[in-house]
Computed example of a mutant assay.
Amino acid sequence: MLGAAGATARGYDCLTFDGPGQGYALWKQQLTFRPDWEHVVTPVVDFALGRPGVDPKRIAIQGISQAGYWVPRAVAFEKRIAAAIVDPGVCDVSKSWTATLPPPMIELLKAGRKDEFDGNLNKMLDPATKKSVAFRMRPYGVTSYFDAFKATMAYNLMDVAGKIECPMLITEPANEAFWPGQSRQLYDLLSCPKTLIPFSASDGADLHCEPAAYGLRDLRVFNWLDETLGAI
């Protein structure tokens, strides 16, 4: 998984898991996304603390892509985590869904006109896009376009970001495709110790999750984590 190789190269022990809506949890256990990710992370922390050699004062968590929402949500309530990393920051998951909707479709969504919304979108989408949207809907556990778009609106940090206490690093890649501007937005919402690390096209480290520059990404992220945990 992204970041784990860089972490183990630094000497960190890594615990990875499939949360609801991801990998084995989705395909085999039929567990779908949930916005209250603290109820996912707290059992993971419990498990980690039962492992030999785990320092309870130096547990860090890293969230990639949409986990840029889940990790801040979790640490807003799970206080045993000493440091958090998100790549990128995500304040409002729904923006990646609604950004390309025409204004009349946004109005149907706001008005709760499900049948009209589903019917119109079904006409608007070509077959390939329908398959792509269906794939993205499955983790939410819904089959209606309207229900999927409405479900994403529950994934919002505006009311909980102020509860975060642990130090947080937020990456800010240039040309972010899914949640542009939200890394800075999350940074501004936080009152905890915080760091915003930009990644630029000139570094070859732009785009969502810095796909062409994992080495540079890991260098900056784990330099920060070394310093942050070293101060504890």
Rank of each mutant, 00 (worst) to 15 (best):
S94R: 07
S96T: 14
T98V: 12
T98G: 06
T98Y: 05
T100G: 12
T100S: 14
P102A: 11
P102T: 08
P104A: 02
I106Y: 07
I106F: 08
I106A: 09
E107P: 12
L108V: 09
L108N: 03
A111K: 10
A111L: 09
G112K: 05
G112Y: 05
G112C: 05
G112T: 04
K114H: 05
K114N: 04
K114G: 03
K114V: 07
D115Q: 12
D115E: 13
E116L: 14
F117Q: 03
F117G: 05
D118W: 08
D118N: 10
G119W: 04
N120K: 15
N120A: 15
N120M: 15
N122T: 14
N122L: 15
K123H: 10
K123G: 08
K123S: 11
M124S: 12
M124L: 14
L125S: 03
D126K: 14
P127Q: 01
P127K: 02
K130F: 05
K131S: 11
K131M: 12
K131Q: 12
V133M: 09
R136F: 14
R138A: 09
P139E: 00
P139A: 00
V142N: 02
F146H: 01
D147W: 05
D147V: 06
D147L: 07
F149I: 08
K150N: 06
A151P: 08
A151D: 03
T152R: 08
M153S: 06
M153C: 08
M153P: 09
A154T: 07
Y155F: 11
N156I: 07
M158R: 15
D159W: 05
V160C: 10
V160D: 08
A161V: 02
I164M: 03
I164N: 00
E165K: 13
M168S: 04
M168E: 01
M168R: 05
L169C: 05
I170H: 00
T171F: 02
P173N: 01
A174E: 15
N175K: 15
E176P: 08
E176Q: 06
W179H: 08
P180D: 01
G181T: 04
G181Y: 00
S183Y: 04
R184E: 10
Q185H: 10
Q185P: 09
L186E: 04
L186K: 03
L189T: 04
L189D: 00
L190E: 00
S191T: 13
C192Y: 01
C192Q: 02
P193S: 01
P193A: 03
P193R: 02
K194H: 02
K194N: 01
T195L: 09
T195W: 08
L196V: 03
L196Q: 00
F199R: 01
F199D: 00
S200N: 10
S200L: 15
A201C: 15
A201M: 15
D203I: 13
D203R: 12
G204F: 07
A205F: 02
D206H: 13
L207A: 14
L207H: 14
H208E: 00
C209A: 03
P211W: 00
P211C: 02
